[in-house]
């Protein structure tokens, strides 16, 4: 489903810094992969390359067989809209929109009527346990609830890929656990491929595989079970 072939991402004019250094990775459909590593190891860069927000300096990033670097900006955006859902650590909700409007936003950008978008958004919010709070704005909700809205928004197209950047990073452990459980449930329901960047060992345990990055290189790739054993 997600394939990185010898991908590098360099920064800087004079002294070149590798954010990712010749990384190759294959993630199968429906697989859940956690990416761990210290700050500056290249986790976020990896995520940005996979969702097409950033472009590799060399190598290829393929989503469902499509090399996203070969697409122009509009086609890449459409691919992101339809095939990739994104969940951020800081939720990145629009503060002026209600929960329902936030979730309906990708549908509206895709040209759906407000009625249809609202109805689908309400159904998705119901799935994430916020059926009763559709008209609330983010500032009227807790951190966990906000992350649920973000997940509902990410999954509104039922994309085959869900990218999550520290989804529990801003939450207390109980709420974090609830969010992970929610993601598990949705994974079971939609068989979504999940690539999750996290520092949280417990979050990693919810995945099938754990990849460790250091200085832009993959230093280990283990199953979650092996990972837990190592811990």
């Amino acid at each position: 489903m997600i394939q990185l072939e010898n991908v590098s991402r360099e920064y800087g004019d004079g002294k070149v810094v590798y954010a990712l250094d010749h990384v190759s990775l294959l993630i199968a459909k429906g697989e859940r992969v956690a990416v761990m590593g210290p700050s500056g190891s290249g986790k976020s860069t990896l995520l940005n390359l996979v969702c097409g927000l950033d472009e590799p300096t060399s190598g290829e990033v393929k989503i469902d067989g499509t090399n996203i670097a070969s697409l122009d900006d509009d086609r890449r955006t459409r691919l992101r809209r339809e095939k990739i859902g994104m969940v951020f650590q800081t939720f990145n909700l629009l503060s002026t929109l209600t929960a329902q409007e936030n979730v309906a936003l990708p549908l509206r950008l895709n040209g759906s009527s407000k009625k249809e978008a609202d109805s689908r958004a309400a159904a998705m919010l119901d799935k994430v346990g916020l059926g009763a709070r559709v008209t609330h704005r983010p500032d009227q909700m807790s951190g966990g609830e906000r992350q649920r809205i973000a997940i509902a928004r990410a999954l509104i197209f039922q994309p085959p890929v869900l990218l999550a950047d520290e989804p529990t990073g801003n939450l207390d452990s109980k709420t974090g656990e609830e969010i992970l459980a929610l993601m598990d449930g949705l994974h079971r329901e939609f068989n979504t491929t999940i690539l999750m960047v996290t520092h949280n060992e417990e979050a990693a345990e919810h995945c099938d595989r754990v990849i460790r990055l250091r200085d832009g290189k993959i230093v280990s790739s283990t199953t979650a079970k092996e990972h837990t054993t190592k811990q």
Partner: peptide
Amino acid sequence: RELGVLRAIGGLR
């Protein structure tokens, strides 16, 4: 930031 979010969730330029 808001416009960035819109782009991230699939808004075309």
